[in-house]
């Protein structure tokens, strides 16, 4: 039922998000060269998590967000599609990064299974947290205000991470202390909560936020 919406977002991603693909390839290559800098691994995750928000921005610009109200889609389906589309891209990027991490560790001949699991758990949690906090604000406040709220919350999350890494020595120690499964399941639950809230907010709003 949401195939039409999926196809529309796919066309838009191919057209508008070419720069994202270039960044993804560029940063992937750089992460292979850079041994210690995790930024090159984390940044593509954060960008992929922002993809649904970028697409919602284009929807608003073209007035699709109003036009979709003339089509036979339930509001819940419209939100579900954005979450599923985002999830597909996000998981694709995550799998790619997981492979790169493995290659990267093998190249430097220090592949340790535990370190590898900590690293990809961090990538997994980061991408799920980023996408979880972006969309509900858009569906509640609209694209412009929602984006501002998102940036504020990202700042809070970064500050929290910095504080946690100060307390535990490093951010990877935070993951080890809390347990990797707890962190990963927690981020997935946050994503589910975000999805639920977005559906609720959008059902109350008029089309054309």
């Amino acid at each position: 039922m949401m195939k039409g919406l999926f196809l529309k977002d796919y066309y838009m991603m191919i057209k508008y998000c070419k720069s994202f693909l270039i960044i993804l390839i560029g940063f992937t290559f750089l992460s292979l060269l850079s041994k210690d800098n995790l930024f090159f691994l984390f940044y593509p995750c954060m960008i992929s998590a922002m993809l649904p928000v970028t697409l919602l921005g284009y929807d608003e610009k073209s007035k699709w967000n109003e036009y979709v109200g003339t089509l036979p889609y339930k509001k819940t389906i419209i939100v579900n599609e954005k979450y599923l589309f985002g999830l597909c891209v996000q998981l694709g990027v995550f799998i790619l990064i997981a492979i790169i991490c493995a290659v990267r560790m093998n190249i430097s001949s220090n592949f340790v299974w535990k370190d590898y699991m900590v690293l990809i758990s961090m990538v997994f949690v980061l991408s799920f947290i980023s996408s979880s906090i972006s969309q509900p604000f858009i569906y509640k406040f609209g694209v412009e205000k929602g984006r501002i709220a998102y940036y504020i919350l990202i700042g809070v999350v970064c500050a929290g991470s910095a504080l946690a890494s100060t307390i535990y020595g490093s951010i990877s120690n935070v993951f080890v202390n809390f347990g990797l499964p707890v962190m990963c399941v927690g981020s997935v639950l946050l994503y589910v909560l975000s999805w639920y809230l977005s559906v609720r907010f959008y059902n109350k709003r008029e089309y054309g936020f």
């Binding site: 919406l5 284009y58 610009k61 699709w64 967000n65 036009y67 036979p72 889609y73």
Partner: peptide, 21 residues
Amino acid sequence: EVGIPECLNTEQVGKIMRYTF
């Protein structure tokens, strides 16, 4: 204001609508 995304052409719009209606 017909709210079709600017990057889409008529052929793509047709495919989207095929899966919509």
